[in-house]
Design a protein around this nucleic acid. Structure first.
Lengths: 218, 218
DNA sequence: TGTCTGATTTTGGTCAATCAAAACCCCCGC
DNA sequence: GCGGGGGTTTTGATTGACCAAAATCAGACA
């Protein structure tokens, strides 16, 4: 029922909401996430609210309704199942699938998704390590920390790589910085805005704060 | 990069052109095929022509350019490869895949199509028996025969009705003897100058030679 | 408490795709 | 050769998605 554009707004708003622990999401943030000018975000969100997908509070922000949440989860599910399909069945590298999943998620019907899901053995995480909402809309996200918050000098496992830029993912892949990999944070230097970590038999690397904040571990 | 809408126009125009043996396609026909009002077809076709996909002659019709042809073939290829995928890999019935293919064809990138094509063993016909254009744009439209020359007792599809007499067309329409309809030739009797055919759940009829020679099938 | 600044909303405009209905043109039959 | 009629084009309007820039508001800070 929602247009492709609205689907993207719903997904984005949902993810931003998650990111900020359920807080109301500002228009600036929506605009940023959608890559549009703030005025556009305002008008779109207002119309989305009018269709019952979200609550909109002027000069505060937006928060999905129950209905909007369900819809967003369905879209997220499509996206992530497709990502698994692209990697597991079509043999793509997990670093290069985002774009395609982004387009396909708006074109697969429920029946097709069901078959693809079965074909992939009903996965519950995508190739980035992100959890896949169930068909009935359940969505558990285990407590995760960024590389900034996690304990130092302890073996921990990479849960998710939030960054989507292909060249960063490429780099991450090269370094073995992938979901599931075991690492150890050696040093964290807030002044230098740097986090140094040790990767299993791959030596160690130092990341800037911007990147470190986009990698979560569990 | 054509929009989804333009892609559909290109595909439709291409198919209509095929159907009528390369003739110029009237606006009425485009409108009909696209399910829009004639005025819409006119404006869209004009803009398509302006982008170099087609030649448009006012009050005559439209014909694809070389570039438009290539584009149309690429779209047709996507559509048909996806149809094979839906049947062969996902296990759908060939009668229920059109809708989904119609939506997916605008969302698969070249790289994804390539992998899907390989996964399906590079088919060259789709589940309806329609030929799939090659990746390089070659397209062997299936040879057409009259009802006099075609194989007997095999499902074949009506390609063109050459006869133009209104009362015959009326009759043909009534009987479901229209382009695209699936039939089976039951018997051919040269002495009696008659061809008997079976129409999908419309029973069977017998035509004289003069008429039979003016209907082509593939 | 008043002001300033940055985020947000409004306003006015564009582009793509569509429809309804009026205007138009061309060919066919008389 | 003239007039109709049917297909085609135009015109005017709408809807969705967007931008630029002006207007507005709210919270911070003095």
């Amino acid at each position: 029922m929602p247009s492709i554009t609205v689907e993207n707004y719903l997904k984005r708003i949902f993810l931003e909401q998650q990111e900020s622990g359920g807080e109301i999401v500002s228009m600036g943030r929506v605009a940023q996430a959608m890559g549009v000018v703030p005025g556009t975000a305002t008008t779109m969100v207002k119309s989305i609210a009018e269709s019952g997908w979200a609550h909109y509070e002027a000069r505060k922000g937006v928060r999905l309704t129950e209905k909007g949440n369900r819809m967003a989860l369905a879209i997220l599910r499509r996206h992530r199942v497709i990502e698994v399909f692209l990697v597991k069945i079509l043999g793509f590298d997990w670093t290069e699938i985002h774009e395609d999943a982004e387009r396909l998620e708006h074109a697969v019907s429920d029946r097709v998704l069901k078959r693809i899901d079965d074909l992939c053995d009903n996965p519950n995480v995508d190739p980035h390590g992100d959890p896949i909402p169930s068909a009935t809309g359940e969505f558990r996200s285990r407590p995760q920390m960024t590389l900034f918050e996690c304990p130092i000098d302890q073996p921990i496992r990479i849960a998710r790589v939030l960054k989507q830029e292909p060249d960063f993912l490429q780099y991450a892949e090269e370094k073995g910085l992938v979901p599931g990999a075991w690492i150890r944070v050696i040093e964290r230097n807030p002044i230098a805005d740097a986090v140094t970590l040790h990767l299993q038999n791959r030596g160690q690397i130092t990341l800037g704060g911007k990147v470190a904040a986009d990698i979560t571990v569990e």
